[in-house]
Design a protein around this nucleic acid. Structure first.
Length: 137
DNA sequence: GAAAAGGAATTCC
DNA sequence: GGAATTCCTTTTC
């Protein structure tokens, strides 16, 4: 009864501490815009279809429908994820790469190397801790 | 003050 | 050799 706000998906919570090694960190390449912290967040597909038996649809349901089909509506509305805890993300990356001295300064430098390669870029309206995967051609 | 942006040197596979 | 790391300075938010 308290759906996340649309436009920015705020991860509910970050795994406390466990040095988990998600070997298959699925980066939704289908999403046009997102940061490095990925995964579905916020509202699970609890009441996906908005057909609550003739009840008039709620706005938030409608918005979710659009968000669910980025292929159709991604140009108009889409989830935007952002890095919430840069230090933690860097720490996880350091664990994955066995680089204990990793930090966000270095991680972000590596991300910036992607700019000229056209893999990741900064969104048109640059925001802190927000990057954008470039659509593959 | 933390994040962004790069240049440059170094390290790793 | 390429990707990533390390280190650094300057600029922006």
């Amino acid at each position: 009864r308290e759906p996340g706000r649309v436009g920015e998906a705020v991860p509910q919570e970050i795994p406390p501490d466990p040095p988990l090694l998600p070997s298959t960190l699925s980066l939704p390449s289908s999403h046009p815009s997102l940061p490095v912290a990925g995964g579905d967040t916020g509202w699970a597909d609890s009441e996906v279809d908005s057909s609550c038996a003739g009840q008039p649809i709620h706005l938030w349901q409608f918005l979710k429908e659009l968000l669910l089909k980025p292929h159709n509506y991604g140009r108009f509305i889409r989830w935007l994820n952002k890095i919430e805890d840069s230090a933690q993300v860097a720490r996880l990356w350091g664990i994955r790469k066995n680089r204990p001295a990793m930090n966000y300064d270095k991680l972000s430098r590596s991300i910036r190397q992607y700019y000229k390669k056209g893999i990741i870029r900064k969104p048109d309206i640059s925001q802190r801790l927000v990057y954008q995967f470039v659509h593959p051609v």
